[in-house]
Amino acid sequence: MPTEVLLAKALVELADTLVADFDVVELLTRLADRCVEILDVGAAGLMLAGPDGELRVMASSSEAMRVLELFELQAEEGPCLDAYRTGKAVTAYDLAADGGSWPRFSAEALAAGFGAVQALPMRLRGTVIGALNLFHVAVGEMRASDVQSAQALADIATIAILQHRASLEAQVLNQQLQHALNSRIVIEQAKGMVAERSGLNMQMAFSALRGYARKHNLRLVAVAEAVIDGSLASSALAPAPAPGRLPGRLPN
């Protein structure tokens, strides 16, 4: 199949992994495999930055120890780290000649049988989240169209990961919002229950709930929940004294 068709298929496949059961590692593993198929490279891998800013191997087209070690090394030096830090593509078309800035990485890559290496940033606007690493057996420049294809695959993966992160963040915030609303509802319900059982008005019922929570060092919402589910009797809440008037039964 021509490269364009393979690339289009890969992009559709990647888009397909974005639905419901999104899994970052699965997405990146597919991306690494497709790079090897489409771009005629010896090995491909992806590294993402953790919350601490350190690069970690997320996916590799090869499970060979020598290849995995090449990625792990790049937490300290190598083209991935440079691409991540600069946000620009980093290439060494002849590792034996150009690999001087990463002595350990270059030596290991040559020993593993690779002659050239390339790292493309995983970047969306100002944010760089990691890098795509391509290893070539032969020394020499990569075709410009292949570089573009690799960058397109990396861009799709970047967008997917950033969207996924935003969605997770939205979920957490929405849960906080719901929790805030529910806490208030439970407190209002408990106020009503205490008001009815103890013949207090709403303000006094609230004071009674809050007084009990303070006295027993409990959260107000926990006291309210206990009143609602019946595990705390309304009569156990000492009515807070209201200044200027006696707490007592209000006429119905």
């Binding site: 805030a180 009503g192 059982r197 609602i228 309304s234």
Partner: peptide, 30 residues
Amino acid sequence: APPGKLAARLGAGADFHYVVHQASGMVAAQ
């Protein structure tokens, strides 16, 4: 917003039917 609280800028002017929930508590007791 502080944990467990609705943000003040969201709550101002909002109607979360607190009186309905107070009434629910009373009717539940009744």
